[in-house]
Every structure is written in structure tokens, then in C-alpha cells.
Simulated assay, not measured.
Amino acid sequence: MFDLPPDEWDDVTPEGGEPAGLDGEAPQLYFPNVEVFVLEYLAPTYCRSLEGTQRVWCPQWWRHAEAINRLEALWRAWEHLRLDPATGMSVWWRDHADPHMAALLAPDGPFKGCGTERGHQPRSAPLPVSAAPVGLFA
């Protein structure tokens, strides 16, 4: 699927623009992209101690494909749920932020080996896979 160098994300960018809303108009985003969302909202809001071995974070989170995908999902969910004035933010925290951040910060998660002091370290190898028998998914 992606041909990534062994130690970094290769700046693959999705093609196309924002999906159209129900009225045919592109949704109005609060944050223009995932990087701004992480820098201006998530990092200052989701404060956790990174001392010890219980949580791991990579300052260069954008060099990890899994982190990009999870953080993009968090940003998109936040953009959608922020418009729900009743329980949107509660749903975002419970169903999106807490599970994704637990996976990202896990000692054996995508940032394993990285750290605030060590910075980015080469990422782990992809999961080994074998091709399915021909016609199984046709």
C-alpha cells in the first residue's frame, strides 16, 4: 500500500479536497489541518506525564504512519462533534480521544523507542503478512 522508508513518513498526502456536507458545501473546519489541531488543541489540552515508562510520545509524531492516521481521525471526529452543543465533546473524549491517545501513548505503541528526550527513533517494522488465496475476497 504505502512504500515508506524504514524510519520516516514520506509525506504522502491524500488526493482531493474536503468532503462535501449535506448541503453540498465543504464543511467549515475550525482547524485547517491535523498539524494545527495537534499543536494548538490536542497537545495543550491532553496533558499527561511522560516521565517513566508508562507513556511514550514522539515530538515528531508526523513521522509515524499510525500516529498520523489516529490523530487525523481524532481531528476529524473533533471537527464533527464540536458542532453538537449537548454531548459532542463528551462523546469525543470518551469514544475518540481517550482510546486513541491510550493506543498512541502505550509503551508498545507506535512511539516505542521515541521520547521527549531521545526524540524520534526509527519506527518498528510493519506486521508480517501473507497474501490471501486468490479469489478469497473477490
Rank of each mutant, 00 (worst) to 15 (best):
D3Y: 00
D7R: 05
D7A: 13
W9T: 00
W9Q: 02
D10E: 08
D10I: 00
D11W: 11
E15D: 14
G16D: 08
A20C: 02
G21Q: 01
D23I: 02
G24C: 04
G24N: 02
P27R: 02
Y30C: 04
P32I: 09
E35K: 13
E35R: 15
V38T: 03
E40L: 07
L42Y: 05
L42M: 10
A43S: 14
T45N: 11
L50Q: 03
W57T: 00
C58E: 04
C58K: 03
W61M: 06
W62S: 12
E66Q: 15
A67P: 09
I68D: 01
L71S: 09
L74G: 10
L74N: 10
W75I: 00
W78N: 09
R82P: 07
P85H: 04
A86L: 14
A86N: 11
M89K: 07
V91E: 10
W92T: 05
H100S: 11
A102W: 00
A106N: 10
F111Q: 04
G115F: 11
T116Y: 09
E117N: 11
R118W: 00
Q121T: 07
P126E: 03
P126H: 04
P126K: 03
L127Y: 05
L127A: 14
V134C: 05
L136H: 05
L136Q: 14
